[in-house]
Write a protein that binds this DNA or RNA. Structure first.
Length: 197
DNA sequence: TATAAGATTTACT
DNA sequence: GTAAATCTTATAT
């Protein structure tokens, strides 16, 4: 079942990050379908969180889609190399987003291996830059509606959380001072697809 | 206008 | 363990 807009428009971005674990991200790019279960997320709250690009409610050309209402894709280029995929949440004017950090591949694994230039399916979607490359996520998806025909999310069929969830601190945000200690990262314990430094 | 650093990954020493 | 790749934004001249 496709996740509806009201799921994303709630105001608790941390809760949404937790609930996105176990849902399935789909992209259909160049007529190739790729899907994967989300196993690692991080929450970013633009109004109070120094680690967010939108702190403190600052709108730029890069991040302006975060100020739109929830249920859109926020894609940006980091280090001039990697695209990171975020899901915009909350109401218009509240710049919250959830970063997708790792997937467990389900469909289109051959396609993902070709895009990643790997001959093995090992860890082709572990890490935010890697999964974007595997799913063909780039700036063409900036602001894309998550109920469209290019990128969307679905609840998994069984609706269960088969694995234990770990809540801990985020990665790569040491510059954010006290906010770097917020435990806004979620992942499935012992899942081999979770990103490891 | 110029410089520095970043929600990262990969290759090399 | 360290460095390079190289685009966007913020801060300082």
């Amino acid at each position: 079942m496709i996740i509806q807009k009201d799921f994303y428009e709630r105001d608790d971005v941390v809760l949404i990050a937790r609930e996105l674990l176990g849902t399935v991200l789909h992209t259909r790019i160049d007529n190739a379908l790729t899907t994967g279960m989300i196993v690692e997320t991080e929450a970013y709250c633009g109004s109070i969180d120094r680690a967010s690009h939108a702190f403190p409610n600052r709108k730029t050309k890069r991040n302006h889609i975060m100020f739109d209402s929830g249920g859109k894709a926020y894609v940006y280029l980091i280090y001039g190399i990697h695209y990171l995929f975020n899901i915009v949440t909350n109401r218009s004017g509240a710049p919250d987003a959830v970063l997708i950090r790792a997937l467990q591949p389900i469909q289109g694994i051959e396609t993902m291996m070709r895009r990643r230039k790997k001959s093995s399916s090992e860890r082709i979607t572990s890490g935010p830059g890697s999964l974007s490359q595997a799913m063909a996520i780039d700036l063409n998806l900036y602001g894309e509606d998550l109920q469209g025909n290019k990128v969307w999310l679905e609840f998994s069929g069984n609706g269960t959380d088969p694995q234990e969830v770990v809540q801990t601190t985020r990665i790569g945000v040491d510059y954010a001072g006290e906010d770097a200690k917020l435990r806004w990262r979620f992942y499935y314990k012992d899942n081999p697809w979770v990103s490891k430094p």
